[in-house]
Design a protein around this nucleic acid. Structure first.
Lengths: 241, 241
DNA sequence: ACCTGAACACCGTTCAAGT
DNA sequence: ACCTGAACACCGTTCAAGT
C-alpha cells in the first residue's frame, strides 16, 4: 500500500465555522446566513459544512452559545467563563475578585448580571431572535442557569423562587435585546394622526434617541424588577420566623 | 367593444391571506410559511399573492397585527379594539364597563393589560419571534402604545416615565411569550452532569411542568415589576411637593 | 383588476466520487 | 477523514400573457 498524503490539515473546524457564521450575521443579519454563502466566506464548497455540523440550525446553536458564553457570572461565585468560552474573558467583570453573592447582596448580583447579560446580547442583536426562541439547552445557557439558580439559593431564596427568578430575568433581558421600542417609531411627525393616536404627538422624537430610550427603559425595568423581588424576599423572611 | 365578464369576485383579499398565513404558522411554525405553500392553501397560484401584498414580510406584518389587535386595552379608558380588529372582540375584558385608569389604579391597569398582552401572544407563539423583532409600526401596535402611554400620563406619570413603562412592559411580555424557560430543560435526569452544573440536579423536573413554571415566572415578574414601579411612583410624588 | 405559467437566482441537504 | 460537483426538492419574486 502506498502511504497517503491525506493528513494535510483540515480546512475547516467547528469553531471557525461558528465564528464566521456569527460574523456574517452581525454584519448582514440572520437572513443573510445561508450555508452556501457561509461556505463561500470560508473559501470552501457548500456541502463541506456538513462534515462538521449536522444542520444549519446546529451551526446557529454554536454561534448563539458563543454569545451567551460572554456573560459575566462571577457575581454568583462562579469560576469565570466555562471551557467553551475561548481566549477572551468575561465582560463587565468589575469589582472585587469573585467572592460570590453571599449574605444579602443578591440584588447587586442580579443587577450586575442583568446588565452583563443584556450587553452580551446587544453586541449581537441579529442573533437574538434565534437565541431567545431556542430551547436554551446549549452549554453556556445551562452554565448561566446553573450559576443564577445556585446564587439565589445560596442567598436564601427557596428553590422554586430561584427558578422563577432565572426565568423572569431571561424574559426581560431577551425581550429588551430583541426589539427596539424606540426604533418602532418613525422620525416623521406627520406619521401619527392625532385622530388615530391621540397621545402619540411626540412619538416621532423617540426615533432620534433610540439607544437612550431603550437603555433607560431597560434600567428602569431592571431596577423595578429587583426592587419588587426585594419586597417579596422580605415577606418570605418574616414569614420564616 | 365587447363587455368583459371580469368582475366575477376576486378570489383573494388581504384579510383572507393574513388569516390563512396565521393559521398556517400556528399549525406548523414560522418556517412552514412559504408564499407557495400559502397560495396552495388558498387554492391559488403562488404569484397571485403579490397582487395584494408587496412582499412576504408584508403578509407577516398583517398576520402579526391581527394578534396584537386582540389585546384588551379597555383598562386604559380606550374605546375597545380598533377598526382593524375584525368581528371578534377583545380578550380578557373582565370587570366593569371601560371606565379607564383614573386616579391611582394604574397598577391594576398594568397588571390586567400585561396578562391580556401575554395571553394574546401565547395563543400564537410561533409568530412571536417575528412580531417581537419587527419595528412595531403596525397599527394595532401603535394603538396599544398610544393607550398605555395615555393611561400612564393620565395616572400622573411624567411623559418620559410613561414611555419607559410602555417599553419595559413590552420587553417583559414579548420575552416571556417568546421562549419557554422550562422547555429549555430536558426531562432526563442524566442530562445534567453535576460536575458541569452543580445546581441543576432537579432541573429535569422542570420539563414536566413547562406551562406552570413559565406562567408562575411571568406572574412573579409582572408583580415585581409593578411593585417596583409603585415604589418609584411614591418617590416621584413626594418629591413633587 | 386579478390570476396564471414560465423563468431567474437562489435555498438546505444528500450522495457518489475523489484524495 | 474531509472536501468536491452534481443533483433534488424546494424558495421569493418578476414578468409577459390571459380574461
Amino acid at each position: 500500500m502506498c502511504r497517503m498524503a491525506r493528513p494535510r490539515k483540515p480546512l475547516l473546524n467547528r469553531d471557525r465555522i461558528a465564528q464566521a457564521a456569527l460574523a456574517l450575521i452581525d454584519a448582514e443579519g440572520l437572513a443573510a446566513l445561508s450555508t452556501r454563502r457561509l461556505a463561500a466566506e470560508l473559501g470552501v464548497s457548500g456541502p463541506s459544512l456538513y462534515n462538521h455540523f449536522a444542520t444549519k440550525e446546529a451551526i446557529l446553536d454554536a454561534a448563539a452559545d458563543t454569545v451567551v458564553a460572554q456573560v459575566d457570572l462571577s457575581m454568583f461565585g462562579g469560576r469565570g467563563p466555562g471551557p467553551g468560552a475561548g481566549a477572551n474573558g468575561t465582560r463587565d467583570s468589575g469589582a472585587g475578585a469573585g467572592s460570590g453573592a453571599s449574605g444579602g447582596d443578591w440584588p447587586d448580583a442580579l443587577l450586575a448580571w442583568g446588565r452583563s447579560y443584556r450587553a452580551a446580547l446587544a453586541d449581537h442583536p441579529h442573533i437574538v431572535p434565534f437565541l431567545a426562541t431556542g430551547p436554551g439547552l446549549r452549554p453556556a445557557g445551562l452554565r448561566m442557569a446553573d450559576a443564577v439558580f445556585g446564587g439565589m439559593v445560596d442567598a436564601g431564596w427557596p428553590p422554586a423562587h430561584a427558578t422563577r427568578i432565572g426565568a423572569l430575568m431571561r424574559y426581560f433581558v431577551t425581550g429588551s435585546a430583541l426589539g427596539s421600542f424606540a426604533g418602532g417609531f418613525v422620525g416623521d411627525a406627520a406619521a401619527y394622526d392625532p385622530a388615530d393616536y391621540p397621545h402619540l404627538g411626540q412619538a416621532h422624537l423617540l426615533a432620534g434617541h433610540r439607544e437612550q430610550v431603550d437603555l433607560g427603559a431597560f434600567e428602569t425595568g431592571l431596577r423595578a424588577l429587583i426592587d419588587g423581588l426585594a419586597l417579596q424576599f422580605q415577606v418570605l423572611r418574616t414569614a420564616d420566623r
